[in-house]
């Protein structure tokens, strides 16, 4: 593949360099590139210079495949197919190593605070990077899963804006839930 360089300008006017192949991990950038409107620099008014390097880091890793480690792991041998795909044990091992390595990379990559999570989520949404959006959304979902409303509120600093009466009713129902339904 050609290693044409693309330049991205953040909302606060800082310019970053990225390979074209990596940039194609983003649907939005891909459309701009394919549309031939490459006038040197692509302005990204919704992405700040704090978060853009993080996005570029993801694109570099995923340029071309646009998926998360899960997808690759599931792409194994399809038993229902009448004719099995060519099978190569060496290839399979390499694939496994690649998936493991990618998982480890994702784990390290995703180690950041909540503010970054939101910025990254919004950037992934704006730039249409499906793999990155799924990754960040899954992280947010994992902070909700199996927790009580109080724990979730604390996690995300959500203020309950119910009236005292509503609140009372909520607490009643919540208590019912806590009492009767075991949390995972």
């Amino acid at each position: 593949m050609s290693s044409t360089k693309i330049f991205l300008k953040s909302s606060d006017d800082k310019t970053f360099e990225i390979d074209e192949t990596a940039a194609r991990a983003s649907e939005t950038l891909k459309n701009i590139i394919d549309g031939g409107c490459l006038d040197g620099v692509i302005p990204l008014p919704n992405v700040s210079s704090n978060i853009l390097p993080k996005v570029i880091e993801y694109c570099k890793k995923h340029g071309g495949d646009n998926g998360s480690s899960k997808k690759i792991a599931n792409g194994g041998v399809d038993k229902d197919k009448e004719i099995l795909p060519d099978y190569d044990e060496e290839e399979d091992k390499r694939e496994k190593v690649r998936v493991d390595e990618l998982k480890k990379w994702e784990e390290e990559y995703m180690d950041f605070d909540q503010q970054v999570l939101y910025d990254l989520m919004l950037a992934a949404n704006y730039l249409h990077i499906k793999g990155l959006l799924d990754l960040t959304v899954e992280k947010a979902a994992s902070m909700i899963r199996g927790r009580t409303p109080d724990q979730i509120r604390e996690n995300f600093n959500i203020n309950s804006d119910f009236t005292p009466e509503e609140e009372e009713e909520m607490i009643l129902i919540e208590d019912e839930w806590d009492d009767e339904w075991a949390f995972d």
Binding site: G146, P149, I152, S160, D161
Partner: peptide
């Protein structure tokens, strides 16, 4: 179950 529980968080 988890989605339902989010309805207790706040009005929005």
């Amino acid at each position: 179950k988890d989605a339902l529980r989010t309805s207790f968080l706040s009005k929005s």
